[in-house]
Computed example of a mutant assay.
Amino acid sequence: MTDRPVVLITGASAGLGEEMARQFAALGYDLALCARRIDRLQELRAALPEVRVIVKELDVTDDDAVFTVFQEFAAEFGRIDRVVVNAGLGKGAPLGTGRFDANRATAMVNFVGALAQTEAALQIFRAQGRGHLVLISSMSALRGMRKSMTTYAATKAGVAAIAEGVRSERIPGIDVSVIYPGYIRSEMNSRVSQKTKFMVNTEFGVRKMVAAIEKRKVKAYVPAWPWLPIGLAMKVLPLSAVRKMV
């Protein structure tokens, strides 16, 4: 069993997941990393020689594989201290425009996949008697979003609801956090204009995410400025005003 704490991160081959892996390694964590692109994970492992890193290929829509991979990580490390449910997909199209395939794919990865990851993580944590479950949601989860964002926002609202439901169960020894990132540059939004208002670079945005996770915050809008006041406003303003904000 490792002496260092162990964090398991899904979707770790790029974007926010990859940067979280780098930043948790800098904090002294051993890493259990999984994603569909095993070659990218192997490159990341080679770049982090100061900690123990185990990588595994995983498609989070393969339910059986999620449980198998999580249990393999737990067996190889001897424990898992934290699981970050991060794997996500940003496909989408306005409903009724003939792209159900894209919206279904997003729903399967972002919600059903997150459900499987949560189940697998909690099996491990219940057996250990402790653990920290972290679910990555989105600021778009706070209200219904239009056009290509409709399904994505709905899935992220579902992720936040999973976190709140588990937290309300008050499972002894288990902490639950939900993180609502604002506009943080990542592979998923690489096609979005560089001039998007409030967009921050990956390293800075993830540093704020990791800080909130380390504090085991119940929920965090990150970066807090401007997303904390925007989040509070989004909950109460009419949709006509929300459309102009995000």
Rank of each mutant, 00 (worst) to 15 (best):
V109P: 03
A157S: 14
N103A: 04
T118H: 05
D63T: 14
R52H: 07
L95A: 09
G182R: 00
R167E: 12
L41N: 01
F204R: 11
K147E: 14
P5Q: 10
A93I: 04
R37V: 08
L16V: 13
S138G: 12
T118V: 12
A212L: 03
L237G: 11
V112Q: 10
P94Y: 07
A161Q: 14
F70E: 02
L228Y: 15
Q23R: 11
V166Q: 07
T2Y: 04
V246D: 00
P94N: 06
R191S: 12
E214L: 15
Q128C: 10
G17R: 01
V242T: 07
S177P: 02
A32M: 09
A121C: 09
V51K: 05
D62N: 14
V178R: 06
G98Y: 01
E214D: 14
A74W: 04
P181S: 09
T10V: 10
Q117S: 13
R79M: 09
T202D: 11
F100G: 14
A211C: 08
P223Q: 09
P238K: 12
G92M: 00
H132P: 10
Q117V: 05
R36H: 08
Q117W: 00
G96R: 07
Y29M: 00
S168E: 12
I38T: 10
V246P: 00
R170C: 13
